[in-house]
Design a protein around this nucleic acid. Structure first.
Lengths: 165, 165
DNA sequence: TTGACAGTTGTTATAATATAACATAGCATT
DNA sequence: AATGCTATGTTATATTATAACAACTGTCAA
């Protein structure tokens, strides 16, 4: 089962679990989760919000890692190739993937107040995309589905603040 | 009715009609379709593929327009604010909007062979997005829906070339 | 052992995309 | 003419991403 990214939760457990998962997954696949790759994945998960490449780079630099742009972009490329994270195209930022075992591309809810992202993988949306594509004889390879708005928690807060419109 | 962007068609009529439409729409709204704005819109429509800001800028420069980046970004901002074009976030490129009267955000089929884009506005997809968002108590403001793959025409071509796999 | 390779990382430079900030110009209304 | 608003010009810089090539590391086989 899955918690919402928007709700308060013990995020350190998310990180630990995501890293453990990534390790075994890479071992199974015979690919290397090298120190810099692992650290980038940790940093992505540590962030409560989608994080940009240059912000990651700054953190790596502070920790003594090599800190030229290719370092972080290579790590991001590897991790996204392994399905361990997703890039959010509309904000040029990266988020950890909750379900890296099965190759997929998620759908994302992006809250413009708290700037958190929630990954979905709605079969309903997938079906709607497939139907539309089929109608045009279009064969889907991949997609970018990013929904921007306000999450439940932030909505509740703003209504609490302005009870009478 | 609407032709597919992927199918052969008299594209000059698309342009003329789009510009005419834009003119009357701007007049109605009391906003100015200035020469540079109009020219950017024409260039976007003239391109058979989504076109990048700096490519537009190069064309403007050749035609004697001012050619610093803000010029084209301002025009793009105006045009997209009026719903006359859309930005494709996954490829940083811009396409004309077929239906600028009703504010909306389309869904896009992007062919990775011919690099053309087809705008959809499927109620089926909109509904699926709404249902998913509602399930999470999420209020949608806007979205980015970009489906990458192969269009019908390019699929037909590639099957014609490789009849027996 | 060594040498050949594949994969990874280091390094430098640069490309591609986008915006900030402030000055100037045009034009409508007072 | 003076005022204010919108649009444009101009310079500089921020942000995001990749090219190209050199150096290192481990593995496996000759």
């Amino acid at each position: 089962m899955q918690t919402s990214a928007f709700s308060p939760h013990d995020h350190s457990r998310c990180i630990t679990s995501a890293i453990g998962h990534a390790k075994s997954l890479c071992a199974d696949r015979g690919v290397k989760l090298t120190p810099v790759r692992q650290r980038v994945l940790e940093l992505v998960w540590q962030s409560h919000q989608p994080i940009g490449a240059y912000e990651l780079l700054a953190s790596l630099a502070k920790e003594g890692f090599n800190s030229a742009p290719p370092t972080v972009y290579r790590a991001l490329e590897f991790l996204s190739g392994q399905g361990l994270l997703h890039k959010l195209e509309s904000i040029n930022a990266y988020v950890g993937c909750c379900n890296p075992d099965t190759p997929h591309q998620g759908h994302f809810l992006l809250c413009q107040d708290c700037h958190q992202a929630q990954e979905l993988d709605s079969q309903y949306i997938n079906l709607a995309l497939k139907v539309s594509a089929d109608q045009h004889g279009f064969k889907i390879q991949r997609h970018t589905i990013e929904i921007v708005g306000t999450c439940e928690e932030c909505l509740a807060q703003s209504t609490a603040l302005e009870p009478t419109p």
